[in-house]
C-alpha cells in the first residue's frame, strides 16, 4: 500500500499555491497556540473549537444575509468572546496545575464545545454562502490560482510581520518573550502576569478568528468537527518545530501545512486517503530525531507531560 507512493503526480503551480496558503493559515494557528503555551505552559487542544465557532459565525452570517464584512466581524466577535471565556473559566483556575492536567482539561473543553455545537447546530454541515466565491481562480501569469490562496498567503505574511514588530519592538512584546522564557524572574522584574497572559490570549483569539475565515472559505463545510483535525496537525507541527519559541513554532506550523498541501497534490489519487498517515509518520520520525524541535538550537525546556 505504501509503495504506491512511487508513482507520484507532477507538482503543479496551483498545488504549490494551495500548499503555501495552507502553510500560511497553519502558521497563524501555530503562533496562536505557541503564544499561549509560552506564557501559560498550556497546550490548547481546544483551539480548533474556537475556529469551529468562527466557522459557524460565518455560516450564520451568510444565513442572515449579513454583508461579508459583517460576517467577518461576527466571526471575530464570537471567537474573541469564546477565547476570553475559556481563559477565565478554565485556564485561569488551572494556572498552577501540571501541564498534564491542563492538556487533559483543554481536551475536555474541546470535546464539550464540539458536542454543544452538535446539539445546537445539528449534524448537517453548513456553508459560508457568498464568501465561498473567494474560491474562484485568479489568472496569475497564465496560472489559475484561487483568490483565497493569495489572500491567505498575503494575510498570513501581514499578520506575522505585525506580530514580529509587536514582539520585538514594543515593551509588551519584550515582556511576553521574557515571560515565555522565565515567567518567575520576569514577574520579579515587574512584568505584570495578567497583562502578559491576557495579551497572549487575545492575540491567540484574533489569530484563531483569522484562521477560521480562511479555513471556512477553503473548506466551505462547517460542522461540529470543523477545525479539529487541523488543530491536531498544527499541534503536531508546533511540537515538531519547537513549542516554546514563537519562530520555531511558526515554522513548524507552516512546514506541516505546506507539506500537507504538497503531499495532497502529488499523491496518486488512490493514495490520498493515506495523507494523514504520511504526515503523522513524518511527525514521528522528526520527533525521534529532534525531540526538542526541528527549528530550535540546543535543548528546549519542554515540560514533562
Amino acid at each position: 500500500m505504501i509503495l504506491g507512493i512511487l508513482s507520484l503526480q507532477p507538482l503543479t503551480w496551483p498545488t504549490v499555491a494551495t500548499a503555501l496558503a495552507l502553510g500560511g493559515v497553519y502558521a497563524l494557528m501555530a503562533v496562536g497556540i505557541g503564544l499561549v503555551f509560552g506564557v501559560l505552559r498550556l497546550v490548547n487542544f481546544a483551539y480548533g473549537q474556537l475556529i469551529m465557532a468562527g466557522g459557524y459565525a460565518l455560516a450564520y452570517g451568510s444565513l442572515w444575509n449579513f454583508a461579508t464584512w459583517q460576517s467577518i466581524l461576527l466571526c471575530f466577535g464570537v471567537v474573541l468572546v469564546l477565547t476570553v471565556l475559556m481563559d477565565r473559566l478554565v485556564f485561569r483556575p488551572l494556572r498552577t496545575s501540571s501541564p498534564t492536567v491542563m492538556l487533559v482539561a483543554t481536551f475536555a473543553v474541546a470535546f464539550l464545545l464540539q458536542n454543544i455545537a452538535l446539539l445546537k447546530f445539528g449534524p448537517l454541515s453548513k456553508n459560508v454562502g457568498s464568501l465561498a466565491q473567494l474560491n474562484a481562480p485568479w489568472d496569475i501569469f497564465g496560472v489559475q490560482i484561487k483568490e483565497i490562496a493569495v489572500l491567505a498567503v498575503v494575510t498570513a505574511l501581514g499578520c506575522l510581520f505585525i506580530l514580529q514588530l509587536l514582539l520585538t519592538r514594543t515593551p509588551l512584546g519584550l515582556h511576553m518573550r521574557a515571560a515565555a522564557m522565565d515567567f518567575r524572574t520576569a514577574r520579579l522584574l515587574g512584568v505584570r502576569a495578567n497583562r502578559v497572559i491576557g495579551a497572549a490570549v487575545i492575540i491567540s483569539g484574533l489569530l484563531a478568528a483569522t484562521s477560521a475565515v480562511f479555513l471556512s472559505v477553503q473548506e466551505n463545510s462547517i460542522s461540529s468537527t470543523f477545525g479539529l483535525q487541523d488543530t491536531i496537525i498544527v499541534l503536531a507541527g508546533v511540537v515538531v518545530g519547537g513549542m516554546n519559541r514563537p519562530i520555531p513554532a511558526t515554522l513548524g506550523g507552516f512546514s506541516i501545512g505546506f507539506a500537507t498541501g504538497i503531499l495532497g497534490g502529488v499523491l496518486p489519487a488512490d493514495k490520498t486517503q493515506y495523507l494523514t498517515s504520511f504526515i503523522f509518520a513524518a511527525v514521528i520520525v522528526v520527533l525521534l530525531v529532534r525531540p526538542n524541535g526541528l527549528f530550535t538550537r540546543g535543548g528546549g525546556a519542554v515540560e514533562r507531560v
Partner: peptide, 26 residues
Amino acid sequence: ALVPEGRRIFGELTVDENLRLGLAGR
C-alpha cells in the same frame, strides 16, 4: 528591585533588551 541569585539573565535576549525589561518595574 531584586538582583536574584544566579543572576537570572535572559540569555537569548540582548543586553539592551535585558535592561529594558528592568523598566517593567518603573
